[in-house]
Design a binder for these strands. Sequence first.
DNA 1: CCTACCGATCGGTAGG
DNA 2: CCTACCGATCGGTAGG
Lengths: 190, 190
Amino acid sequence: MNDLQKKSKKHYIIEAAAELFTEKGFKASSIRELAQRVGLEPSSIYSHIHSKEELLITICTNCASRFTEGMQSIKSTPKSSLEKVEMLIGLHVETAFEDPAAIAVFSEEWRHLPEPYLTIFKDAKKQYEQNFRLIIKQGMDEGTIREMDTNIVFNTIIHAVRWPYFSGKKYDRKKISETITQILMHGLKK
Amino acid sequence: MNDLQKKSKKHYIIEAAAELFTEKGFKASSIRELAQRVGLEPSSIYSHIHSKEELLITICTNCASRFTEGMQSIKSTPKSSLEKVEMLIGLHVETAFEDPAAIAVFSEEWRHLPEPYLTIFKDAKKQYEQNFRLIIKQGMDEGTIREMDTNIVFNTIIHAVRWPYFSGKKYDRKKISETITQILMHGLKK
DNA sequence: CCTACCGATCGGTAGG
DNA sequence: CCTACCGATCGGTAGG
């Protein structure tokens, strides 16, 4: 097997792991079951990965990058803060549709990351949240968002947007995105 | 030790379990650590409970009752559907404040319930969701809630409301409740 | 990539 | 409520 095949097989294992972790949670997922799903003996998995935790690290790190990059891009966009909030809502919903299983694991299993990845993850999360809250605050200062506690607003948005990765149906992606945006933007606007 | 003391000790163990499960997740929580937290040897826990799973069953069942009862009460209230939705939002936020750890476990660890409790739980959940969606639909029919996909609206609300059990700070309970309600109700109203 | 295997940890029990 | 212990399962390794 050449490097390309090896890489794609690893990728395949990571995808299967994301699905397994989504279904059962990280701790309740065994390498034995993962092996069975990808058609290998349990020990053979270790020809492709170093540890079960590496799978979680890979999944969480990849997803974190997407959000960090998305935030950077939105931050530097020449738009109003209100529009930026709308773009952030879109970022979460669209990303959830692109890779539902990975985003589910990233959202719900990150606390099982081993150190030092857990600390790095938490720092990135904190950074992201601060950026998000700042944009919300700016919207209030610009007079387009009603005056409310920034942290409460942030938490409400971030959770309202944390579910489309369950509902896999492709056909109503657009409708889901539009409706969530509609509810939240109407809820925030002055 | 008399029955009353035994009951309260069991209650104490359940509370400690709710906190442990909230922190680490059900699968990653060990009876050994729970025992340490309540000041017992691991095996002594079993003088008070039958199994680790029993703890999860108790926590989830208790919380489920609160929501089922809350729903029944709100359903039969002589108010508009819009007001009922507002009451449901309140039910979730207030309940989260009353018993944050239990509600966190109920919300995030129920999938680890053993059968037949898992099936019972899922059925109750389905029932609750149908009632919730019906009230939303009635609000649209009454012309007070904008026409949107009922299921998407439901999911957005239910997730927007699924976080106050983290933020333990008692002093801004009222503000959290009011702000979430404000955002969502503004988001739904025609 | 497989066979064979290991040490650690787990939930739980026996017996007092 | 404790001491002592057990079988099951886990992540992972050795060696080919």
